[in-house]
């Protein structure tokens, strides 16, 4: 049961933290239309996070016979600490410039697309349903990012060099996406979770295709950072949570 809840929290945290990161662009996008586009993506991810948190809260409440205080989506998002968050390191990396934000979204959306495709067949009906619903949004995110990666990679000398910089900044966080955490390993046999290890080749292939269209070089094999899925994060998550959770921690239970 714990593994099951942890897995759902992992899926939720990925979506929430990337949503929070993208939302930092709100009002600062390079042009009005793109400001709206990136915040749209942010809202899509927030919606996915809510679905997962609501489901996790439901399972937590079922698993404790007499909860002192029932768990809710808000408690899970606003009152857990850094070490309890199970998002992968990629989504907490800083926005950088527009190119870095685009590349992070491209890496993650491509991963999420493959993940949700498989998760649709999960034996957990609720997870399958959330994945099926989210897949339509993610399909659009993939398309949107792809055009931007090609546009910037294949654009001017400056946009190309900025994309090279973005690859340097982010590539070493992509390996973690395909390493199963303990909770995932337990659930694979039950047919609930997706074996992310099996997504790696297809992800690599999709990224290769777009990189070659964008005239961007494929990075060499480098050391890959891991730990986020187990709650060991880069320095950035603490700052993100400080901002994200400020209101609930200062005024517990406050509502709009």
């Amino acid at each position: 049961m714990n593994h099951h809840i942890n897995y759902i929290l992992h899926l939720a945290d990925n979506a929430l933290i990337l949503s929070q990161r993208n939302s930092e662009w709100c009002g600062h996008g390079p042009i009005l239309e793109q400001d709206i586009a990136i915040t749209n993506i942010s809202l899509d991810l927030l919606g996915q996070a809510r679905n997962f948190y609501q489901y996790a809260a439901e399972l937590i409440n079922k698993s404790t016979s007499q909860p002192i205080k029932p768990s809710t989506e808000d408690l899970l998002a606003y009152l857990r600490t850094e070490r309890e968050f199970k998002n992968c390191l990629l989504v907490e990396q800083p926005n950088g410039d527009w190119g870095q934000t685009i590349l992070r979204q491209h890496f993650f959306s491509t991963y999420q697309f493959l993940l949700y495709q498989k998760l649709q067949q999960s034996k957990d009906g609720q997870l399958a349903a959330i994945a099926a619903k989210a897949l339509k949004e993610v399909t659009y995110h993939v398309q949107w990012c792809k055009e931007w990666v090609v546009r910037l990679g294949n654009g001017t000398a400056e946009s190309h060099s900025r994309m090279l910089h973005a690859i340097d900044a982010l590539w070493s966080y992509t390996g973690e996406l395909f390493e199963n955490a303990e909770y995932e390993l337990h659930l694979i046999n039950e047919g609930i979770s997706v074996d992310v290890n099996l997504l790696k080749n297809e992800w690599q292939q999709k990224v290769n295709e777009i990189f070659s269209e964008a005239t961007l070089p494929l990075p060499e094999k480098v050391f890959m950072h891991t730990g986020g899925k187990q709650g060991i994060h880069t320095e950035y998550l603490g700052f993100i949570l400080t901002e994200l959770q400020y209101m609930q921690k200062t005024y517990p239970g406050c509502e709009w």
């Binding site: 042009i31 239309e33 709206i36 749209n40 055009e147 546009r151």
Partner: peptide, 15 residues
Amino acid sequence: LHAADAAMAIENARD
């Protein structure tokens, strides 16, 4: 709206 090319115009219009 503003867009750099036709594909971006459609995407921006969608958003």
